[in-house]
Design a protein around this nucleic acid. Sequence first.
DNA 1: TGCAATTGTTAAAGAACTGTTAAAATGCCT
DNA 2: AGGCATTTTAACAGTTCTTTAACAATTGCA
Lengths: 219, 219
Amino acid sequence: MVEDDSSLGFLIKDALEDHYDVFWATDGQKAEEAFKKGSYNLCLLDVMLPHKSGFEIAETIRKTNTDIPILFVSARAMEEDRIKGFMKGGDDYITKPFSMEELKHRIAVFLKRSKNQSVSQDGISIGVYNFKPDLLLLSTSQEEKKLTRKEGNLLFFLASRKNEVIKREEILMAVWGKDDYFTGRSLDVFISKLRKYLSEDPAIEIENYHGVGFLFKVK
Amino acid sequence: MVEDDSSLGFLIKDALEDHYDVFWATDGQKAEEAFKKGSYNLCLLDVMLPHKSGFEIAETIRKTNTDIPILFVSARAMEEDRIKGFMKGGDDYITKPFSMEELKHRIAVFLKRSKNQSVSQDGISIGVYNFKPDLLLLSTSQEEKKLTRKEGNLLFFLASRKNEVIKREEILMAVWGKDDYFTGRSLDVFISKLRKYLSEDPAIEIENYHGVGFLFKVK
DNA sequence: TGCAATTGTTAAAGAACTGTTAAAATGCCT
DNA sequence: AGGCATTTTAACAGTTCTTTAACAATTGCA
């Protein structure tokens, strides 16, 4: 966020900070430096700034990044200013005064749309394996195995709490939603299967704690 | 585009028609019908309409489609109206009067960002096939097959989310608007048909995720 | 050490789900 | 209203997945 007016800058930063990490620059110079160094998801640029205008900042940004949403904020409501904003690669042009509520919504719109585009799911890594929970794909560099739904759910749950002893009942409630004798036996069956699938990597172990539960160990 | 005022409606349609195919409905009823049948890239909704408000139309659309950009146009500039627009799933809220120039820019922003790069005159390409959603034409260099409406809608939905596991319920809600046993069986029937139509290209696969949904895989 | 409870493993049984084809129903057009 | 295209429902055949069963192995405690 770039805003030279300190009271408005503070107000915006404060309003957004509940949901986002905000970096606030007070001039274009600092803004461009920060942009170069850091990694951001959205830019909020005041148009009228001491040395460099928001439009100029946008131009610089667009030279290296065509994707990041750029929202202009300005006191000037004239048509030609707005158009200029869009011409410089802006995604929205918000006229002062505006409510923080509306600003939040407009920001949310663009974050939602840019997030969806990077659906490149890398999955989670478990030892030498990589597991993509959505695709239920457990893979090594060698091969790829498609798990069933329950297998996937269980593995995901265990992997999300690795190196921690988890009680049987807790696993049962989390993955099956119920805890009785037969469900417990089912769990044992599935643990057995997972052990087999994960046997490539000796650093992975599903250790039983007798009468308590399991420990998904990844060294 | 939904606009009850005929002179403004004409103006908008005229302004946009250079670049886009515009369907203009004059009330919510017609709009929702057209939306259900056709395939669109963006909605422009007037808020104040005779029977059904633009907000209500947006609500209906969002039940089955979370992606399509929705832009509201309204004479009411009050803060709470704008907020309501965003709450209903809108992406922008443009206050009358506005310039056609600005409208075009705002539309361009969302089309550029929309997920599956807009459906142009050339349709979308799926492996060796080309599919034109409007004309329901699925073609290879060899031949051309005219799909039915449901087949087309389903294919379009799947293709727009390729390489992602989509839950049965989600497909059912998006394409049929309801989710029950028989509709589910219908889905299976249509999947079977699509597989047949797409069998020319071995790189295309509709993979079933047992008990979950389908994965429209295009290698 | 011996015994009951717990766990490991594999296979069989039983559900639930899907693929496919065809018949029935629906909607649409003249 | 009749005929055609489309969609839904039905029917049946497979398939896949989860649970249950059965038995072996292990553990912890008396």
